[in-house]
Amino acid sequence: MSSVLPTRLDTATPYQRLEALGIVLPPAPPPVANFVTHVFEDRLLFLSGQGPREASGHLHTGKVGDGVTAEEAYGHARLTGINLMQVMQEALGDLGRVRRIVKLLGMVNAVPHFADHPQVINGCSDLFIAVFGEAGRHARSAVGFGSLPGGITVEIEAIVAID
């Protein structure tokens, strides 16, 4: 399920890697409640949770393990990673300022017996490694929830070290 970039892109910028992956960053989704999309603290950027919102505004909803497969949810986590990168872009002005993805918290809206939360959140993790290279490797938690806002399938938040 992960993307592997050709060796010649090992020194590529995040934008060159996004282009190689065929990804165009959409406008960042607005907050859905009383919070901001990001906060700076020293050389850290804290990103509020994002969900699997398409550029059209469509949200992927449902329970993983009951109507939503782990493979579909992997794609939703990847889409959520794209949305997180757009928030990074708007906050930083340049994805080249990302020194390292420090930590992700991935939440999966799943049935109680579902156990593949890490594989779902790999959709975001694999994307960040593909776009940021070694700087995209991060610490992470992947957990299941009984529900998420609006019934979305996944929500992911991030902590990013910046230059």
Rank of each mutant, 00 (worst) to 15 (best):
S2K: 13
V4S: 15
V4Q: 11
L5Q: 09
L5H: 09
P6W: 00
T7L: 09
R8C: 03
R8M: 03
D10G: 01
A12Q: 03
A12K: 01
T13G: 07
Y15P: 00
Y15Q: 13
Y15K: 07
A20D: 05
L21T: 12
L21C: 10
G22W: 04
V24N: 09
V24W: 00
P26F: 06
P27D: 14
P31N: 06
P31I: 03
A33L: 07
N34Q: 14
N34H: 14
V36T: 15
V36W: 04
V36G: 15
T37R: 15
T37M: 14
T37A: 15
H38S: 15
H38M: 01
H38P: 06
F40N: 06
F40P: 06
D42Y: 05
D42W: 02
L44F: 14
L47S: 08
G49H: 05
R53G: 00
E54H: 14
A55Y: 03
S56E: 09
L59I: 02
H60Y: 15
G65P: 11
G65W: 07
D66Y: 12
T69L: 01
A70H: 05
E72I: 00
A73H: 05
Y74I: 00
Y74M: 02
G75S: 06
L79Q: 15
L79K: 11
L79S: 05
T80F: 07
G81V: 04
G81N: 06
L84H: 13
M85C: 08
M85P: 11
Q86K: 12
V87I: 12
M88N: 03
M88H: 02
Q89S: 12
Q89G: 00
Q89C: 02
E90G: 10
A91N: 13
A91E: 11
D94G: 06
D94Y: 08
L95D: 06
G96D: 09
R97N: 07
R97V: 01
R99N: 07
K103F: 13
L104H: 10
L104P: 11
G106H: 06
N109R: 04
P112F: 08
P112S: 12
H113C: 01
H113L: 02
H113N: 09
A115D: 14
P118F: 05
P118N: 11
Q119C: 00
I121W: 04
N122G: 04
C124N: 04
S125G: 09
S125F: 03
S125C: 05
D126E: 08
D126V: 00
F128E: 02
A130T: 02
A130R: 03
V131T: 08
V131A: 05
F132D: 12
G133M: 02
G133K: 06
G133E: 05
E134S: 10
E134Y: 04
A135F: 04
G136N: 10
R140E: 07
S141H: 09
A142P: 08
F145L: 14
G146V: 00
S147I: 00
S147N: 04
S147A: 10
L148V: 03
T153E: 13
T153V: 12
T153A: 15
V154K: 08
E155L: 10
I156P: 13
E157A: 15
E157L: 04
A158F: 06
V160W: 06
A161R: 15
I162Y: 08
D163C: 02
